[in-house]
Design a protein around this nucleic acid. Structure first.
Lengths: 350, 350
DNA sequence: CATAGTACTTATAACGTTACAAATATCGGA
DNA sequence: TCCGATATTTGTAACGTTATAAGTACTATG
């Protein structure tokens, strides 16, 4: 007789089924059930099948708290949401992307918002201290990012959205902002623009450098005039940018080409110029980096290079999964290539 | 001698400090430490103080997995993010709001994205089945919402963003969409508009009814003409709405007033009309419900009634906390009052 | 000085899982 | 038939916490 008779004991059917319940039904030991569910090769295939069938039938789901206590693994990934991501669905796309990458694994996604004005290291420290996740994703890296240093020191798995300039490697996903800026300048020149202005992010961020390099490379190469506004950044709010644009528009040194690595700065600038009586396409042009469909849907003629944030989320998720599996590298490093497909100049004219 | 001598044992300072570590240092039993940390009045105040001082010193943090296993409480709140929330920072504001409400409590926020096209009950069932949270927040309720029914049957704490029409009470936060629609009609009438069109959400949602009631009430009361487009809803994407608006704009029955309970539908309509040669302020007017600052920043003259989504998040969070504390009610029910302050008609003219 | 009450502390067990070491069953070959 | 190897299963303990019931010491009372 290959199996002992099922021991009909008092407790199953009531309350939540556990491995113990399965053990009682199958007549196996709890250990065996555990290992069968893990797919351990050392357990007879017949047993594995029988166990998972019973598990299925009685609706067994493993207790994450118990697994976590025993194994030390949370099976959670934390995404730290930057307050600057609030604009135009950035955060949502990122979340959706990461969630997609995690779907099918047994990892859950935990979103920790970083409050405006708080030190960026805080949520990271909190997660590590309280062991709330097995891996962390965060964005807006700086060249010598404190968070990267912190996590690396503790060998805590992470992936960043954005690069750093440390001497060592780590997992990241980034957008080729240098190419974006470079190509944008060329596009504006192609349209006959000569005084090219770029709205840069605050200079502590790595992607400030990348944008700047690409921009300056093209400016120098083509012998154009550069214009980098002092008081305005990608993080300035719209009214501020609007005021600035309105003022500069009527000055003799008014730029005639804008590179906007964010949708809102474009909107503010376009409005400022319009307010000053200057029309886009006539008095100035702009290339915009958009992370949503909104702008393109408002006006498909806007020169727009899109950054696929949801894809970035997927990449961040998969890179982090790999990093958690092999904590000592090789580190997955992915650069998203800007998709440069402008409306043709001809069709734009009519 | 009131305290035993600290037992210097092998293990503290290495590895993660636990209650056991504190017990060894203070010479108390683990149970006492546990109860002291919980602030149990039965433990001498001196002891409580001493324990928390030591805990502080050695950087003790409770192990959430162990607490969860023992108590059955996850101390997690799940926010289910609807894919339709992706537009214009809605989801982010909600997250930030809930996070604010939870800050200072020992609850963590877990964001579960609901994938587009998936059954809305799925994430709810999943969370309940796997006991991933102690309470759930979700949005876009229907009059007889399956999720509400499901959770209520199992007495699982939840708060909804939006009302239902069940005979029983539950905790919710909602926006007074009826008032929004009603006041919007009046505003458009005040501007001389007579053919008023409203873009409604798909009719399975409760807030479709509320918007419709408010709208119809004002339309009838003032003897205006109503226009509810058939093929278009608040969830239609921009190009679709744009096409529709462009077509209707040049027909004899073209509405001259629009109520847009979402920013993107306004943008699409305004573009469609413009494309058809019709100008806002001249040929038509619109009242928009905005959940971000973007629109207002683009043009402060747009008649705009704002819905404070972050506040909604805070309310949802606090309501849920109360519900979890008192699972049998009374249920916190909050209606957000639309802030109706239009630019004055005079100043709009110049 | 015994007694009851009060103030405070503690041992034990348990939550559900898995790692480890050990036991048992099965099989092929001598 | 016995032996060793292989296949499979199992008992025990532990992860860190808290609920329960029980303990001890001290204080007030008569």
């Amino acid at each position: 007789m290959p199996t002992k008779k099922p021991t009909i004991s008092s407790s199953h059917s009531a309350s939540k089924p556990t491995q113990k319940t399965i053990a009682e039904i199958t007549g196996l030991a709890v250990t065996t059930v555990s290992r069968a569910l893990q797919g351990d090769e050392k357990i007879a295939q017949a047993t594995r099948l029988r166990v998972s069938k019973v598990a299925e039938e009685i609706g067994y789901v493993p207790d994450r708290a118990a697994q976590r206590l025993r194994t030390g693994k949370t099976k959670v990934v934390s995404l730290i949401l930057d307050p600057h991501n609030e604009i135009l669905g950035f955060g949502n796309s990122l979340i959706t992307g990461v969630a997609h990458a995690l779907a099918g694994t047994d990892y859950h996604l935990n979103v920790t918002p970083q409050f405006l004005g708080g030190d960026p290291i805080e949520p990271v420290e909190y997660i590590v201290r309280n062991k709330l996740a097995d891996g962390i994703i965060f964005s807006r890296t700086r060249p010598f990012d404190e968070r990267v240093r912190f996590l690396r020191e503790r060998s805590f798995p992470f992936t960043t959205h954005g690069r750093t300039e440390f001497g060592y490697q780590h997992s990241y996903v980034d957008y080729d902002n240098e190419k974006f800026a470079y190509e944008s300048v060329l596009r504006l020149m192609q349209k006959g623009r000569r005084r090219i202005c770029i709205i840069l992010p605050p200079n502590q961020f790595t992607f400030h450098q990348h944008l700047n390099y690409g921009y300056m490379r093209a400016i120098r190469q083509e012998g154009l005039q550069s214009y980098i506004p002092g008081g305005i950044s990608l993080d300035s709010d719209m009214p501020e940018v609007f005021e600035w644009a309105k003022n500069i528009a009527s000055s003799p040194e008014a730029p005639d080409g804008f590179i906007c690595p964010g949708e809102t700065s474009f909107l503010a600038i376009a409005n400022g110029y319009r307010q000053a009586g200057k029309a886009r396409g006539l008095d100035f042009d702009a290339v915009v980096k958009s992370s949503s469909q909104t702008l393109h849907q408002i006006d498909p003629h806007i020169d727009n290079i899109s950054e696929d944030i949801q894809e970035a989320g997927v990449l961040l998720g998969t890179n982090l999964l790999k990093t958690m599996e092999h904590p000592d590298g090789p580190f997955e490093q992915t650069i998203q290539d800007p998709d440069i497909t402008f409306p043709s100049l001809k069709s734009f004219q009519d």
